[in-house]
Amino acid sequence: MDHLADLKKFATKPINEAAFAGMSKAYALVMSKSDTRYVACSDPAEIERVRENFLKKKLGLTSGDLDGSIKAVCEAMKADRTKSRLTFYYLLAEHHGKLDLFVKA
């Protein structure tokens, strides 16, 4: 799968390729497994996992409309039955202004 091409389908702003490369490296193991490669927006446990493990632990967010941002990305990607976790996480990080966390200095 061409992850950058997938992201380009959903990105509304210019893609931060350095951040995307950092994310690709950080989530290479997750993306290599068929059971973790995609985000299931219809699964409440999956939404909780994204909120707790990505938004709170990885991005360090503690306040704001975390569930609302997840729902917004679900809505933006609704046409795609298989929502790439890498694209999903990139869009969330972009939404919260946290792409710089993935850029290696």
Rank of each mutant, 00 (worst) to 15 (best):
G22V: 11
A93I: 14
A21S: 14
K25H: 13
L66F: 01
M23E: 00
L86T: 11
F88L: 11
D2M: 00
D100V: 02
K57E: 14
F10N: 07
L55G: 05
M77A: 04
I70N: 03
R81I: 15
T62S: 09
T87A: 14
N16K: 01
F102C: 05
K78N: 12
M1T: 13
F10E: 12
K98I: 14
V50M: 02
D6F: 00
M23A: 01
K33A: 09
K78S: 13
P14Q: 05
K71T: 11
E17H: 03
A40S: 11
Y89R: 00
L59N: 13
V103R: 13
M1L: 12
A79C: 02
L92G: 10
N16E: 14
S32K: 01
D80W: 01
A11W: 10
D6A: 03
V73F: 03
A79N: 11
V30H: 12
D43M: 01
D2A: 08
D43E: 10
M31Q: 04
G60L: 05
K104L: 13
M77E: 07
Y38N: 07
A79M: 10
A72D: 13
P44K: 02
K25L: 00
F102L: 05
L91G: 12
M1S: 14
E48V: 01
T82G: 00
H96M: 08
K104C: 11
V50Q: 09
A11E: 09
R37W: 04
K83L: 08
H96G: 08
K71C: 03
S34T: 15
L91V: 06
T82N: 14
K71I: 10
V73P: 08
D65G: 15
S34C: 01
M31I: 08
H3L: 13
L92Y: 02
Y89G: 01
L29Y: 03
A11Q: 12
E46D: 05
S42Y: 03
A45Q: 01
T62H: 06
F20Q: 03
Y38Q: 02
E75C: 10
R85K: 09
E75L: 07
E75M: 07
R37T: 15
D100I: 00
D6P: 09
A5I: 08
R37P: 12
F102P: 15
Y27V: 00
K8C: 07
F10Q: 12
D100N: 06
L55N: 10
T82Y: 11
S42N: 07
G60Q: 04
L7E: 14
F10R: 12
I70E: 04
T87Y: 09
A76E: 09
K78F: 10
T82F: 15
D100G: 09
D35W: 14
K78D: 07
N53E: 02
E17V: 15
A45R: 06
F20G: 03
T62P: 04
E75T: 15
R49F: 05
K71Q: 09
R85Q: 10
R51M: 01
E52I: 06
D2H: 08
A93G: 13
L99K: 00
P14S: 07
F20S: 04
F10A: 10
K8W: 02
R81K: 01
M77I: 06
A79H: 09
L66I: 06
S42T: 11
E46R: 00
E94C: 02
D80G: 11
T87K: 09
G22F: 10
L55W: 00
L59V: 03
K25F: 05
T12L: 01
A79T: 12
L91F: 05
V103D: 11
D67T: 13
L66A: 05
L99N: 08
